[in-house]
């Protein structure tokens, strides 16, 4: 039996070095992605689909996702529904109150780009990416719970790909 076949065994036992750092990063990302607590932001009919996704039939809990009513405890902001200019300011405040690293999921046409209120509307903001950075957009009016779960899995993929240096500082400033 050559050394090559035993290499993984030896490498894991090596103290310090690149291999060990990578696995801490992986462990950290895995734990963050598996307990993604989200801030409730149900504004319109998309909120009904979000509630259905959180309830027992689709069950967000099995992804480790629990809703929090406080931005201080949330990692993910799910903006579900029609955002008016008046509400956009409140969304910005709540986003700023969330602790880094934080993620934003825009659910439905309204939150993505204004949706059915794109034309001839005096009050609706044309997409929340005008005020806060968005990680995942989910199309639909409203999207089905399956779509929302797919979006949540996309957020997990983003988290799993992150490096430790990405955590420092405000991502909104970097982008």
């Amino acid at each position: 039996m050559g050394m090559i076949e035993k290499a993984p065994l030896y490498l894991e036992r090596l103290p310090g070095g690149g291999v060990v750092t990578t696995s801490v990063e992986g462990l950290l990302n895995w734990s963050r992605a598996s307990s993604l607590w989200y801030l409730l932001f149900g504004l319109a009919c998309c909120a009904i689909e979000m509630m259905a996704t959180g309830a027992s039939r689709y069950d967000f809990d099995r992804l480790g996702m629990f809703f929090r009513a406080s931005p201080r405890q949330a990692d993910l902001m799910m903006v579900c529904g029609t955002v008016t200019h008046k509400m956009a300011k409140r969304i910005k405040v709540l986003y700023d109150q969330m602790a880094d690293p934080k993620y934003v999921l825009a659910m439905g046409g309204c939150a993505s780009n204004g949706g059915p209120f794109y034309y001839d509307s005096y009050s609706v903001l044309k997409g929340i990416d005008k005020v806060i950075p968005v990680d995942v957009y989910i199309p639909g009016c409203p999207p089905r719970p399956e779509s929302l779960m797919e979006g949540a899995l996309k957020v997990r993929e983003i988290i799993m790909k992150q490096k430790m240096k990405d955590f420092a500082g405000d991502r909104a400033m970097q982008s």
């Binding site: 008016t84 200019h85 008046k86 794109y118 034309y119 001839d120 509307s121 005096y122 009050s123 044309k126």
Partner: peptide
């Protein structure tokens, strides 16, 4: 309306006061 709204009266005919307003083609 928004707290600092200064774009006129939106339900009037022909209103297009807000900078983000896009009329229906």
């Amino acid at each position: 309306l928004d707290d600092d709204w200064d774009y006129g009266y939106p339900m009037r005919k022909g209103w297009s006061g807000h900078p983000d307003f896009i009329p229906m083609p």
